[in-house]
Amino acid sequence: MKYVFYPGCTLKTAAGYEESINATLNVLGLSIPEVEDWNCCGATAYFSLDELVALVLPARVMAIAEEMGAEVIATPCNACYATLRKARAILADEEGLKEKVNMALGEEDKRYRGKVRVRHLLDYYLDPEIHAQWKDRITHPLDSLKVAPYYGCQYSRPQVEDEDHPESPRALDRFLETLGCQVVDFSSRTACCGAAQMMAHRDACEPLVKRIINDAKQKGAHLIVSICPLCQFNLEAFQEQFHIEEIPVVFFTQLLGLAMGLSEKELGLSKLLVPFKGAF
């Protein structure tokens, strides 16, 4: 399967996510070429403002991936993932919209064909071909670690193709079990953290985060594991307000790195606001 990587705009500032992706792929001798000169996917903002531009932005990314001969785009961000696959589904159904999108892309001599597929980076690591390359590299199983798998909303919603179960996905659970972790039964796994509304409606979003944090703590988790830069940020950055014992929120690739024996430094764990040390 030929993959290309679409990092999205928020990977750069996500606490150690990029570092841990690079470090783990490096150990495995794998590299995924980046979508050349990629642009922002538009996320929820453009669908709220301008529908055609909302489709053109992800279509440009997918058109470039197609030019590169890719079969699959892998992205580490839930919002990018949802936006790309949603645009893909709409453009497959609406020939008229696809024509308009291609008229706009024509300004740069690009054309969206609808051939490339979209996967979350988690699914890249779980691709049997890739999984086979890291499952025997687990030298430091994390069996003392109790973890709460947090998927957020847009990994499994909306349902436009062959996504995991909309409210009870299991891919991250399987990933964490492979690392030796004890995965707690986490009913908030796809509860909403408020996403971008944290900016405009923080008062409404804080109780959502608090509920997710409390659920993880009540289930005895040492850590929450995230698969999305914005989810990680929302779950981590506002805990202070709740005056409860804080719980670290790490990326799944950071735990993979630890299980492969990489150092906390290589995995960017020092960038967390809620320190990882003393978590268990």
Binding site: D50, L52, V53, R60, K100, V101, L105, G106, E107, K110
Partner: peptide, 14 residues
Amino acid sequence: EGFRRVIEKAKQIE
């Protein structure tokens, strides 16, 4: 520049 032309074109079509 090309990216901006694409966006402008989309807005124009819309």
